[in-house]
Structure formats: C-alpha cells, structure tokens
Design a protein around this nucleic acid. Structure first.
Lengths: 207, 207
DNA sequence: CATAATTTGTACCACATGGTACAACAATTC
DNA sequence: GAATTGTTGTACCATGTGGTACAAATTATG
C-alpha cells in the first residue's frame, strides 16, 4: 500500500541521512566520502543518486533533518527553554553530550557549517536557516524574561542569545580539540554567573 | 655559501607553508589537497616529499609556523596583552581581521584543529601545544591584574582565559557561517562588559 | 492482471588523491 | 675537483572520488 511505500522509502533515505549525519558530525563534510556513507547505510550508488542527486544535496538533507530533530526535541540537546533552570541546563546538556562521546565531536551544525564555502549555496542556506532559528529561540527566551521583569533594562536579548551560542560553539570546538570538557565548563560557568547578575527580582533558581 | 643555501631552502619551504596555511585556513585541511598547495606555491611533488614527507607532516609544519608567527607578533591578531586596553582590543583585532577577509575565514587554529582526528597524532599535539600556550598567555594577564589588585578575589584567571577563547572561537566560527560580524560583536561586547564588572579600583580605561 | 511509477543492483567513467621512484642538478665540504 | 649533501624535475601508480547509464526488480494503481 501507499503508506508502506512511503515508509519503505523514508526508511532507506533515513538510514542514509542518519549515517551521513553521524559521519559528517565526526569527520566533517570534507572528511567524509559519499562511498563511506553508502557503506555505513548499506545502500548503493543508485539510491544516492535517486534520493540526493549530489553530495551537496545530501548535506542539505542532513541539515534539514537535523534541524527537524532539534525542533521536535529528539536530540539530547535542544532549544526548548522556558525557565532559568532550563536555560542553565542548556549548556550542561552539550557538555554531557560531549562527555558521552569522548569529546570527539563538537556541535554538528558548527562542524558542517564550518566546512561549507560560498559555492555550497543550498547547504549554507540550510545552515543559516537553522542558525537564525536557534538565535530566535534564545532571544525569545530572554525577551520573555525581560518582559516578566526578570532582567534588568540594560540586558539586550539578541546580544545575550549570541553570547550564549558563541560560548557553546567555541566551547564545544575547544573541548573537541582537547578531548576534554574543561574549557567549555569554565566558560559556560562564567556565562551563567554573568547572566545571573543581569537578573533581578527574586532568588536564583538555576542549578 | 651556507647561508644562501639555508635561505633558499627556507624560502621554498616557506612558500609551501604559507600557501598551505592560506588554503588550510580557507578550506580546512580536508578541503585542501596537496596538489593545490603545490600549484599555489609553484613547487613540485619532489619538494613536498623532501620537506614534509606526508600531508600530516605538512599540517604539523604549518601549525608550528603559525604558532611562531603569533608568538613573535607577526600576525594581525596576537596574545601580547599587557593592559586592559590591550585586552579589550584583543577581541576587536579578530573582528577586524574577519571583516578584512569578507568573513570567509574563522580562526586558523580552530579551523585546522577541528579537522583533525585522533589519527593525526603529530598535528593534534602541535595544535594542543599552541592552545595551551594561548590559554597561558591570557591566564597570565588575568593573574597579573589580580595580583595588582585590579580584579575581585572571586575572579579566576583560568576560567576567564577559557571564557575569552571560547567566545573568540565560537564568535569567529559563527561570523564565518553568516559572513557577517554581528554575532562575535555581540558576544565580545558582553564578555567585555562582564569582565569590567570584575574589575575594581580605578576607572575603566578600555576602549 | 496490466501498467505505470518508484526503487535498487551492477557496471562503468574521468579525474583527483596522496604518495613513490629515481635521476638530474646544485651547492658545500674536504 | 671529487665526494658528499641538499634540492628539484619528471614520470608513474594504486586507490579514492563524485557522478552517470541503464536495466532489473519491486511496488502501487487502473
């Protein structure tokens, strides 16, 4: 039946995307060949051409898939931040993730995005779309806290969002290089302390 | 004579290293082939084998060279930080650099380091050596300021150093992805503001 | 069932990749 | 100037690379 067909189709395509995501995340786009993805996903060249046409097409699909997974909360890390407690654990989840993989990976979007050049128009635009979405999520969190009177007037939501994402990206990259979580721990700890000083009215409830 | 020989030798090797550095910085190690380096430096395979033996050997030399350039202040950015003013312009120099290259590059060490895997033992150890050196430079700056009574007792030099480097790495990576300096500007601006709150005794002299 | 559409297997291709072999050339030292 | 050392040019190679061609199998739909 139709549903079976779509399921079957999605299944094969999904296996390829998952394999690609894993390899891109570990070795980068340039560090991963199409054939390696095919081997890992137990598929052939014809499926590759059928579902993705080119390598960049595959990269694009991988990014969109990742974006969807993150949006729907199906990743160990995420952007569903509703409280100060959520916010402070936002950093911690990245650290936990890295610890769980021996600090051999940084943020997938950072890794993939950093590999793209101006030629990769489609894939880059997918990365940027995700990036703006994530900035928006954090910005919205801070906006809401500010509207609730929990942030001093000088606090600027967009700056705070970019500040957090920068620390996360840099921290994860440095952790990966050192195969150790120390640097991200140190920097996120300071970021949290700083942002606490921008709060007002009420006790600090974060971890 | 001997000097001419060494100069000639260094010249060829240096041309290769400079070409490799430029390409690695722009496209990453995995995004650059040995042949591209040879073409750019107008050299042949025999010189490659003679001076570097393998691609990783070349990467290793590039990192060591870069480390040396940075240590001796021959790069637009650097770690010669003696005053609060120096410190605050430390961030700005990276932003200026990115602006000067259309935000098409991030930090060379971050780009190259992020491409390496556990197999690249030599190159990774070179990256780590540089990284520890740079952490030490920033840490020392904060230690000295603290010793001079210019930082509150709660301020921890190592945390502050890692915090700054994380923001720099993350900010540059994000800037490169977005081809724009906004995110690094936002995050470094907050970092500077925060660190100002940790200072005491005396006016803020930074830019 | 027939037929159309989707999905997959096999073979192939031109070119890029990292690396080797080895002779020729140039410079330095004795 | 002979011998040693350092440097470069040319040709080559096995394997990896992204991608194509096309027929065969499988699945949906009339």
């Amino acid at each position: 039946m139709f549903i079976m067909s779509m399921a079957q189709k999605r299944n094969t395509k999904l296996r390829m995307i998952n394999s690609a995501l894993d390899l891109f995340h570990r070795f980068g786009v340039n560090g991963t060949s199409v054939d390696q993805v095919l081997e890992k996903s137990k598929t052939g060249k014809s499926q590759f051409t059928h579902y993705f046409k080119t390598k960049e097409g595959m990269v694009s699909c991988v990014i969109q898939y990742l974006h969807e997974m993150i949006q729907t909360g199906q990743t160990p890390t995420g952007y569903d931040i509703k409280s100060w407690r959520d916010f402070e654990s936002w950093f911690q989840k990245y650290i936990d993730f890295q610890e769980s993989v021996g600090c051999e990976r940084s943020c997938p979007i950072g890794t993939i995005g950093g590999d793209l050049t101006s030629e990769n128009k489609k894939a880059r635009s997918d990365v940027l779309q995700f990036l703006e979405w994530s900035r928006g999520k954090l910005k919205t969190f801070f906006l809401e806290r500010k509207a609730a009177g929990e942030l001093i007037p000088e606090a600027r939501p967009q700056e705070l969002a970019d500040f957090c994402i920068s620390i996360m990206q840099g921290g994860m990259l440095l952790n990966k290089m050192r195969r150790d979580t120390e640097m991200f721990k140190n920097s996120s700890s300071l970021a949290i302390k700083y942002i606490r000083t921008l709060r007002r009215s009420g006790k600090i409830d974060g971890a």
